[in-house]
């Protein structure tokens, strides 16, 4: 192992870990003002929106690939399926699609 790469990896590890851990050290939870608590409760749903779009459109060069996959996942999820079924369903639909294309 080259020592420069190892130092780089260790540095990357430290700067990635600190933002992950720091909030648990700084806040006990539930002591923030109610408005901020409300904002933090909104964070998960908002994060998911931002994680899905626009990223899903660009998973392949063919933009329809992402659109079709997202639509399939949405439909399966809307019918009330478990998350794993949603994942496998979207993969299956796209496998058929790339087989046809």
């Amino acid at each position: 192992m080259s020592s420069e790469i190892v130092w780089m990896i260790l540095g990357m590890g430290v700067v990635t870990y600190i933002p992950r851990m720091l909030p648990f050290a700084l806040f006990k939870g539930k002591e923030l003002p109610p408005f901020l608590q409300g904002v933090l409760k909104n964070v998960p749903s908002a994060t998911l929106g931002a994680l899905i779009f626009p990223g899903v459109l660009f998973i392949q060069e063919d933009i329809w690939f992402g659109i079709l996959g997202a639509a399939a996942a949405f439909l399966v999820a809307y019918l009330g399926a478990n998350v794993i079924v949603v994942v496998l369903g979207a993969i299956a639909v796209l496998s058929v699609y790339s087989f046809i294309i």
Partner: peptide, 17 residues
């Protein structure tokens, strides 16, 4: 290629309910 959709499908599966 098909599996590249997996994590996005998971996000959708978490969000829709």
């Amino acid at each position: 290629e098909s599996m590249s959709v997996a994590l996005y499908a998971m996000f959708i599966g978490l969000l829709v309910p």
